[in-house]
Design a protein around this nucleic acid. Structure first.
Length: 317
DNA sequence: AATCCGGGGAC
DNA sequence: GTCCCAGGATT
């Protein structure tokens, strides 16, 4: 959960996840839909799929215990250098240094490393530097201490050098380069997209969700349950109406699409304007690919945050 | 080596 | 608004 995600954002998910699936055996045996529902809203959903696959491999091949061997850990889906080092050092006191965004920033300032830290050759050197510093024991405590130093003291903006325990060794500070190091991560230019979505509602307050309706909006909805939706350009209502007929058939022919308040959503480099349309119907469309459920019970299914925002636009009006 | 994948909290 | 997060997989 912590991969590229702040601790504060993870905590409530972590608590709910462990309460529902407290053991590796429970996780391995759970329906994938339950795992994804527990992850719903946290993002990077391949992590959830990989975590469950890893649990299944651990049960099948490692007697239900996370492997102590580095190579075996790296062979698990979703376990890379960082996570393997973190788990093995914290759980088993194995002598592997972690390198994450926090550690990289601390080391880059300590040694005044210029350039993009994520560039593979530079990242590898930083990993070697981290390993060379790992003379302390227990290794897990050392690793967590360096990460926490980065999180709380050696922060990206306005680091708290006055309270830093290693400021006297810091080359970036000596050179007055703490604001220039590390170099900012280069990012892809943002792209603007408009997505129109139809939120059906029957007299009992129920709606429909689909899965895998088309390739174009997978990015936004993460291949999970979603409202019928389509990317639109000039005439959102008309383009959505056409899409609904293609998706759902003639049942969608004479719908009245009532525009609701647009919402903003960002997925990596895409700036998305969500255009919700309420479709009041006496009877919901039926199909094997359709799930019917109350509009205020979306958390029962795996959905992305975009789907939650769309539902909220109806519930708030 | 590049690119992709979510979401939100801090500033 | 901007930045970046206890990264990993895929191409």
């Amino acid at each position: 959960m912590l991969q590229q995600t702040r601790i504060a954002a993870v905590l409530p998910y972590y608590d709910r996840f462990l309460a529902a699936l407290p053991t590796v055996h429970a996780l391995a045996a759970a329906p994938q839909e339950q795992v994804l529902s527990l992850w719903s809203g946290l993002g990077y959903y391949s992590r959830a799929r990989n975590l469950q696959r890893a649990a299944q491999e651990i049960v099948a091949n490692h007697k239900g215990k996370f492997p102590r061997d580095l190579e075996a850990a790296l062979a698990l889906p979703g376990i890379g250098r960082y996570t393997a080092a973190a788990v093995l050092s914290i759980a088993y006191d194995a002598p592997f240094a972690v390198l994450d965004g926090n550690v990289a920033r601390v080391l880059a300032r300590l040694f005044a490393v210029h350039g993009d830290l994520r560039e593979p050759a530079r990242w590898r050197r930083l990993g070697e530097a981290a390993q060379n510093l790992l003379a302390q024991s227990p290794a897990g405590d050392w690793n967590q201490a360096v990460m926490e130093l980065g999180e709380t003291v050696c922060t990206p903006q306005t680091p708290r050098c006055a309270t830093c325990p290693v400021s006297q060794f810091c080359r970036a500070r000596a050179l007055r380069l703490t604001n220039e190091i590390p170099a900012p991560r280069r990012k892809r230019a943002p792209v603007k997209i408009k997505i129109a979505a139809a939120i059906f509602r029957d007299p009992r307050g129920r709606t429909i969700l689909l899965r895998d309706p088309g390739a174009h909006d997978h990015v936004l909805f993460s291949r999970m349950w979603q409202f019928p939706a389509v990317e639109v350009r000039r005439d959102p209502a008309a383009e959505l109406a056409k899409h609904l007929q293609d998706e759902l058939g003639p049942v969608a022919a004479s719908l009245i699409l009532e525009p609701l308040r647009p919402a903003k959503h960002t997925v990596t480099f895409r700036n998305i304007t969500l255009l919700p349309y309420l479709a009041r119907v006496s009877r919901l469309p039926k199909s094997v690919r359709i799930r019917v459920l109350p509009l205020d019970r979306l958390h029962q299914l795996p959905v992305s945050s975009a789907t939650r925002k769309l539902a909220a636009s109806v519930l708030s009006q």
